[in-house]
């Protein structure tokens, strides 16, 4: 028997989940709670559950934080995040905090059962829509990891002129920009490349062949 804890502050949703799970012989709902505090209390009482269905919008504790807290104390329990939103940032954060799966609340019965099955088998389950989002994000930002900081067009121009030995004032005159703007661009580049002064910045840029 798979034992379930449902954490959701919406009575209708709990009702819906219960309805979907009534006929499933191998799953039993041990407890439903409406907030994070009760969830933690229930787990502290040494009640054994296999899966927690966790709404990430709770009235007391932020769901992401709650997920992290539960995971710290219990490495075994499977956590499936439940939410109404489908935003890549939230999904990745939830998985980072130790969740095993992610379901959108407008799921169908089959999907819920599939998710329970998969997390019990030790894999990560993402709902179909969530999966699409994540793949989208990976495609957009996936190669970002070790990439060099990208320079904006203005930064490139200014870097070239700095390398030629021009002062901020001279560059401002040349590009019809204010001294303040030039200085901001320069400071931004120092921060990007973690350089302490303009000289070091030009050296780094040369090494990275950004000035070629």
């Amino acid at each position: 028997m798979i034992k379930l804890l449902i954490v959701d502050d919406h009575p209708l949703v709990i009702d819906g989940l219960k309805t979907m799970l009534t006929d499933v012989g191998y799953i039993s709902i041990s407890k439903t709670v409406k907030n994070g505090k009760d969830a933690i209390a229930f787990l502290k009482e040494n009640n054994h559950v296999d899966i927690i269905l966790l709404d990430i919008n709770l009235p007391d504790i932020d769901g992401l934080r709650l997920c992290e807290m539960i995971r710290q104390d219990n490495k075994e329990v499977k956590i499936i995040g439940l939410t109404y939103v489908n935003e890549a940032g939230i999904i990745t954060q939830l998985i980072k905090k130790g969740a095993n799966g992610y379901l959108l609340k407008n799921m169908e019965r089959e999907e819920l059962l599939k998710a329970i099955d998969q997390v019990m088998n030790g894999s990560i389950y993402l709902s179909k829509e969530a999966n699409e989002k994540i793949i989208q994000q990976l495609q957009a930002f996936g190669l970002e990891g070790n990439k060099l900081p990208a320079l904006t067009r203005r930064e490139k121009e200014i870097l070239h002129l700095l390398a030629k030995g021009l002062t901020s004032t001279e560059i401002a005159g040349k590009l019809f920009l204010s001294n303040f703007t030039i200085d901001t661009h320069r400071k931004n580049m120092l921060q990007k490349f973690n350089a302490h002064n303009t000289h070091a910045l030009i050296n780094i840029a040369n090494e990275m062949r950004l000035l070629d």
Partner: peptide, 22 residues
Amino acid sequence: LHDGLGGLFSTVKMHFSTLQHN
């Protein structure tokens, strides 16, 4: 929208899918 109407719609869908199963 999330908490109220959203939850309502979700529940309706859950019931529907159960109905379909039954």
